[in-house]
Amino acid sequence: MNMIPNLGINFLGIELKNPVLTASGTFGYGYEAEDLIPLKKLGGIITKTITLHPRFGNPQPRIVEVESGLLNTIGLQNIGVMSFIDEPLDRLSKIGVPIIVSIAGNTEKEYREIAKILNMQNNSIISAVELNLSCPNLRKKPICHNLSLMQNIIKGVKKILKIPIIAKLSPLVADIPRLALAAQNVGANAVTLTNTYPAVAINVKNFTPKLSTINGGMSGSCIKPMSIYHVYNAYQRIKIPIVGCGGIMTGEDAIEFMLAGASVVSVGSASLVSPKNLIKIINEIEFILKCKSIKSIKEVIGIVNSKILK
């Protein structure tokens, strides 16, 4: 029991202290919780999705709690890429953990424009870019519903950026492994599985929808098994690493994603409940590995999947 397991992982050439990243949109621009937890302990930070121009987001109500989770309709409120590189990025660079910037656009061109602006920054600040291809807010349908559009966006951004790019996919597609494969084929370096699940909640007291936009995205414990399903099935089809995401509340949940095939995980709703949960998850992963006498976190990636494949 005295052995200290190695939680470090090389993800897309980035050295992470541990596999726990913050999920986009649930950790602000990255430093709002700096007085509550030691940000240095995180594996990495994925920032709020930024767009070319600032966005005001959706009207209230934007949040509603459901059984074991929540629905949100923030509407990609953000300060736009120019303001982002002015202040938040500078502050983020001082934290000392890898920074992954999440971006989204209405069109392929917008994705490229943002990539160009990010590309002009000091290369060492941004470790990777996550393409939010799954947000239902910008267009009527998530971009990843249109396979060729999604592929063009990845190709376009890939040509501009030298750093790795991660495609974040929506769970609302007929065949996630096929989509992930399509992303891989045009050069995505990793995929994040998955974003929130489309959902509706209605108030029976006054017969009105609980969110201003009626439709929202579901996150939290309630989506975990569905996201693990997507990770498990995609792992069998693709070679690029997977960022597992959806309902991770504990170290056990994180390991579950990794056993199914995720190389790293991103944690959203749990950190809204308490930013301390991020640190708790990291400590619990270490504890579980210790108990199982596993020397390195790398050993658990996909082992359930590989066993079954054999």
Partner: peptide, 22 residues
């Protein structure tokens, strides 16, 4: 008062318009 998820400024769930700004 607005519905809140995080309470610390991370989720933008509780945003209102003040002087035209979020």
């Amino acid at each position: 008062e607005e519905k809140m998820a995080c309470g610390i400024g991370n989720c933008q769930g509780c945003v209102v318009k003040v002087k035209g700004q979020n």
